[in-house]
Simulated assay, not measured.
Amino acid sequence: MRILAAGDHFVGPDLLEQALHAELDGAEVSGLRLPWPVEPFGPVGGVEEASGTEQQVIEALDGATVSVTQMAPFTERVFESNPQLRLVAVGRGGPVNVDLGAATRAGVAVTYAPGRNAAAAAEYAVGMMLAAMRRIPASDSELKQGRWRGDLYAYPDAGIELDGTTVGLVGYGAIGRIVARVLRAFGATVLVADPFADPADVRDDGVEPVELDDLLTRSSVVSLHARLTPETKHLINADKLALMPHGAVLVNTARGGLLDYAPLPDALHSGRLGALAVDVYDTEPPPADWPLHEAPNVVATPHLAGATRQTAHRAAGIVAAEVGRFARGEPLAHVANPDVLDRQS
């Protein structure tokens, strides 16, 4: 079996190769390193979030029947150029760098790696909440520039605690559940709005299921953890922001498209929004003239929520395990296009 390990500067081809050799004896593995995250991902050949070029992948496959990757673009052109390909294992929460329709037409099974960064993203979200609520980055920057901001201890500028605060989570998947558990340990009251979550399961976690508008009205801190779909695009817009308590904190470490960024500068300048913490954007990276660069009380980081070494190892292990199952003829764990399996059998 010839396998292409199409890695990058986070989940490197060497890491993928190690995981594959631990799973399989005698596999022939070749490597390709793509430029992400040194260079941002973007649309490539019809897929929305990929790194590198179609031609790089076509040439690197060179007869491989299996590929493991995180960011390589698997497009219709790639599948047409490699008719021998039978499996693409993607080390992400969803195979957004794969043209799933083209893969299905080509008879290629596509798997993915749900939950591989859940712990990392959850911890980061809580860190962003604390950073925004207590103005940690701003005060750090001021001190390093020689300014002692004792005035931030004054009551009007003092932060708020998680203990006793109501925090609303929009979305309650693997990441949201970990965030809720951590917040409850801090002493926060946690509300959840997720139409796909079982209310009984939510209550069993010690969390209150509510509708979105109720969550926004009652929460001093709101954190987004939903998937981006046509239905959730700009889920939080100007009308929804108006429901939030004056001075509330908003956190987005999920997907940029969940949030309409246009009304945020005015909301921050007016104090309607007390602070904003974002790790994802409608355009990545945001432009130099991005209005939020000049807005007060903004914590902004360059899409780092999932960036832990454990996540990289976990992703490599999950895709290697799928290749092992494929090689042994066992059922695959996370298949995005299961109809293909009937055609392969």
Rank of each mutant, 00 (worst) to 15 (best):
R105W: 04
I136K: 03
T111W: 06
D99A: 10
V110C: 11
V78T: 01
A89P: 09
V126P: 09
A131L: 08
G150N: 04
A106S: 13
R147E: 13
E76I: 00
A72Y: 03
A132K: 00
V57K: 00
A131R: 03
G146M: 12
E49S: 13
Q55H: 11
E59Q: 14
A50N: 06
Y155C: 08
S139E: 12
G150R: 12
E142R: 15
G127H: 05
D151Y: 13
V108S: 07
S51D: 09
E142Q: 14
A138W: 11
Y124V: 04
A113T: 07
Y153P: 01
A103K: 02
G115I: 11
A64Q: 01
F74Q: 01
P73M: 07
M129Y: 05
V96E: 12
Q55W: 10
G93L: 13
A60Q: 03
V108R: 04
A89E: 10
L87W: 11
P95F: 13
N97M: 07
E48P: 00
P137H: 10
V78Y: 00
V88G: 13
R105F: 05
V66H: 12
M128G: 00
D99W: 02
A122I: 05
E48Q: 15
G45V: 05
P137Y: 11
Y124S: 06
V66C: 12
D140T: 13
E54C: 02
A50T: 02
E49K: 06
V98D: 06
A109W: 07
V78Q: 01
V98Q: 02
V96P: 00
G107C: 10
V68C: 05
Y124K: 03
Q145I: 00
